[in-house]
Simulated scan of single mutants.
Amino acid sequence: MSPIRIAIVGVGKIVRDQHLPALAKNADYQLVAAASRHGTVDGIDNFKSIEAMLDAVSSIEAVSLCMPPQYRYEAARTALEAGKHVFLEKPPGATLSEVADLQALAEAKGLSLFASWHSRYAPAVEAAKAFLASTTIRNVKIIWKEDVRHWHPNQEWIWAAGGLGVFDPGINALSIITHILPRPIFITSATLEFPENRDAPIAASIAFSDAQKLDVSAEFDWRQTGKQSWDIVAETEAGEMILSEGGAKLSVNGKIAHDEPEQEYPMLYRRFAEIIKEGRSDVDLSPLRHVADAFMLGRRKFVEVFYD
């Protein structure tokens, strides 16, 4: 088959760090255009809007949408209406309802829609899922703490309503936990900490359970300095499992069981090509649903102002 002619919309740090290198190494794609208000990609046609790009480059078959979630719905609908397959960076949208609408439109037009969750493709995630399926789980703790000033400097959109705040990284943990646990979980309580000058939380403490009353807790915090923490710890009948470094490393009872180089975005693009060839979509909304539930059930706690 000929390479899929793909375009990127929203050229920022994640595109330069992850999307462009992944596409450059994948023979399933040919990057033909980009659209962004501020950024450009060398060697291809660049436009200021997705509408201008689609009008000018009719050969585009798929688009990868990497702008902030508050602006993704209109761009995705424009692409689908134009007959293009759509890759959605995480989170797939600002609300569950708008992503459901995109899913229905993609189905009606026979197009592929991909809600990408890059952390599910971290190298040790499948090994963790297999381990948990082989034993009885007693409790699970999620510790996802990082320094927002390092990872999201001067990104005001992330603090606005719909920007998710600390759930922007936290949803990565949720995408992993919803994949590796043998049964669905649901939120029972939450406390969300909002800086007095921000519309999105800087920290969150969440309690989950399931039909068998499994104890699952999560601590998300954007004020971590020094060593960053992206860990999932499970106490089981077979011992302690630690999935660390955002899903890159797995240890069981203190011994490394899985440790490989990260290949998240190359695997995402392999998956996108796969579903396009198969003529179907891949849209799992469970991580975003947990975020929505946290905002619905969560108690708000106001904390000191935060400045970048």
Rank of each mutant, 00 (worst) to 15 (best):
G162K: 14
M241D: 09
L181F: 06
S36G: 11
K48L: 11
R289G: 02
L54W: 06
E304P: 07
S64Y: 08
G298K: 06
A294C: 05
L243V: 11
A122G: 03
D308R: 04
K141C: 03
L268F: 15
V291L: 03
C66T: 11
I256N: 08
R280E: 11
Q103S: 08
D293Q: 11
P68E: 00
I6V: 15
A124C: 10
I158P: 04
D45H: 12
I185S: 04
E126D: 14
L250M: 05
V125M: 07
P182A: 14
D210V: 05
H150L: 15
H258A: 09
A128W: 02
E274C: 01
R72D: 02
G163L: 03
S209C: 10
L80S: 01
G162H: 10
I158Y: 14
R270P: 09
I185C: 07
A211E: 09
V63W: 00
A94E: 14
D215N: 14
F220N: 00
K301A: 14
A207Q: 07
A79D: 01
A190V: 02
R271F: 12
A76R: 02
Q212S: 12
M267Y: 12
G298L: 03
I256H: 06
R280Q: 07
I60Y: 02
I206A: 13
S97T: 15
L285E: 02
G162Q: 04
P69D: 02
P261M: 05
K109Q: 07
H85A: 06
V305L: 14
E235F: 05
L88V: 06
N139F: 13
W159V: 01
I158E: 06
T135S: 00
Q224V: 08
F302I: 10
M53I: 01
L113I: 03
